[in-house]
Amino acid sequence: MKTLSWRDWERLSAYLDGQLAPRQRARLEARLEQEADLRQAFEALRRTRAFLRRLPARRAPHHFTLTPGQAGLRPPLPRAVPGLRWAAALALLLFFCSLTVPSLPPLAAPKAAATAQMMEAASSAPTETAVSLLAAAPAETPGARSLPGNGAPSPSAEADTVTPSGVAESGGAVTQPEPESPVPPLTPWQLTLLILAMLALFASLLLGWQRQRAFRRQFAAGRRPPDGGGGKAKG
């Protein structure tokens, strides 16, 4: 080994691992046949690698599976729920405004339309409207989430299209409110709708809270690692 250069040692090491290019390999093999020192060095190197390969493999002392907490995963909120609450609250607010605004003198114009809208809805199917409010509030659909967006402009949008004559047509048997009357009293329909809207808000909040609780429980139970985390390695 005394004559062995560093370069030769590196070549021998790569040769041992089969990492020499074919030409280099052929050259080294020819030298190995002729040079006893090189052969001796190669044998020593081979023994060293064999020693290292004999190092026993250990088993992991325990499982290293991650729990959701370790992985930084928090039970994500059902995405629609927070938005839904705002949607419901906003819907209620708008609904409330649509009832009260007509009583203010400067906004007399929208009053007729808003009231007309209420009347129209009430006269056609009041319970159905209320039920759909209740059903739509906790749903996780984009439609439900866009409730504020779609719901907000509707009274004013309809105010443009629904004319007093339209109100007259759809109003039917229901008493027609006088556009000029300063403070129209709440009709029984309006009162019913107001109560239903409040019920809808309450129901949506309650349902949202329950969903969130159920989701958290399900998340905690269902996302455990297969072996329960820090259990002992088998065998």
């Binding site: 190092l55 493999a57 250990r58 088993r59 992991a60 002392p61 499982h63 290293f64 599976t65 991650l66 959701p68 992985a71 995963l73 996302r223 690692p225 297969p226 072996d227």
Partner: peptide, 26 residues
Amino acid sequence: LEAFNQLVLAYQDMLFNVALRILGEE
């Protein structure tokens, strides 16, 4: 995470052994 944990189970012995031989302490 469950899929990842299956990979953990497959590779944990190897990673532990590498760490053990580099660090020298269990």
